[in-house]
């Protein structure tokens, strides 16, 4: 691995793709020239443009959220492409109960097996729908996977030492929320018209490896673009919203649960780390912090952007508020019961 400065590193890599002579060579050449030009002269060209402290803090937040999320997104599209290409649809038909209402809890519980944060679970659940899993079950999986996997529960236990009830409450609440939303989806019955079903784009004559490659390429480009939108939103809110207003609401239970829920939406912290942030919000009650940890992995600005891209805006505009409301109510209930 070379350890040279940014411009040289980036400038040399594109040569590998230059073998392609046909098709849109103009767009390709223009993009290549633009990128290499930026890599070589960008800093000199824009010298004095981005010097404002606020803009630089924003840029750090934006790049930080993107850099943190991209490896998990790559893991997610890798898994989802593998599901699409190598696991036959009949496997899921056998593994999940026939009746959709029974498939929901099974899918929720199987969220335990995907260790990763929420960015990984969006492409994976799209791949599940693609493989014929009923959308209600895929949604239950989408919601439970980032919240109840072993990595997240272990980090919660570390963040709240000597308080195993917090870990239990988190697992119980997240599981309950994912099942409730799966069943709600079945009850409304018109999910089909809201959901832009991820379509199976691949001709049947392609080899499995080609399907894998195409699926991964497509999913990464698509989700990656929307991730950038989400990261920009999270960075903006991080810079604009003053944290001081938190202290004024800590005393009121209902208000504090709502506010910490909203904070989880705005900050878009990855689910493997949100427990530590929750632990540091010590002026709040445990129930409010539980709401923070339950809402964070299932609805935040970055996820809303990703879901809009993957499942369509009609879906996202209904799903995000419904998830938020159910998560807040369930947190209140479980907090009252367990904490």
């Amino acid at each position: 691995m070379r350890t040279v400065s940014t411009p040289t590193e980036v400038e040399e890599k594109p040569e590998t793709t230059e073998k392609e002579p046909s098709g849109s060579s103009i767009a390709f050449t223009a993009t290549l020239v633009l990128l290499v030009g930026l890599a070589l002269f960008g800093r000199r060209l824009f010298n004095g443009w981005f010097t404002d402290d606020g803009i630089r803090t924003w840029a750090t937040m934006f790049v930080g959220v993107t850099v943190q999320a991209l490896p998990f997104l790559v893991l997610g599209v890798l898994l989802s492409a593998a599901l699409t290409a190598f696991v036959p649809a009949s496997f899921f038909a056998k593994a999940l109960p026939k009746h959709p209402a029974l498939a929901v809890p099974v899918a929720s519980a199987s969220g335990v097996v995907l260790p990763g944060c929420e960015c990984a679970s969006v492409p994976v659940s799209a791949a599940l729908m693609n493989r014929g899993v009923t959308p209600a079950a895929a949604i239950a999986f989408l919601l439970s996977a980032p919240a109840i996997n072993p990595v997240v529960l272990a980090s919660t236990a570390v963040a709240f030492p000597g308080q195993p009830k917090v870990v239990v409450a988190r697992a119980v609440t997240s599981l309950a929320v994912s099942m409730i939303l799966g069943w709600l989806w079945l009850l409304t019955g018109k999910g089909g018209s809201w959901l832009k079903m991820p379509k199976n784009r691949h001709a049947h004559d392609d080899s499995k490896f080609d399907v894998f490659r195409s699926a991964m390429l497509h999913d990464f480009l698509h989700a990656g673009g929307f991730l950038v939108v989400g990261a920009a939103a999270a960075a903006t809110l991080n810079v604009v919203v003053p944290r001081a207003w938190l202290d004024h609401v800590a005393g009121n239970l209902l208000l504090s649960v709502l506010i910490l829920g909203l904070l989880a939406v705005l900050l878009a912290i990855c689910s493997e780390a949100d427990a530590f942030v929750a632990a540091s919000l010590s002026q709040f009650s445990l129930t409010a912090r539980l709401a923070f940890m339950v809402v964070g992995p299932i609805v935040d600005v970055k996820l809303i952007a990703l879901q809009t891209g993957t499942f369509g805006p009609k879906f996202a505009v209904r799903f995000a508020p419904a998830t938020f409301v159910v998560a807040i109510l369930t947190s209140l209930l479980v907090g009252w019961w367990l904490l």
Partner: peptide, 8 residues
């Protein structure tokens, strides 16, 4: 705790 988004 995770990335700069949660920087305290």
């Amino acid at each position: 705790t995770c990335c700069v988004a949660d920087g305290t």
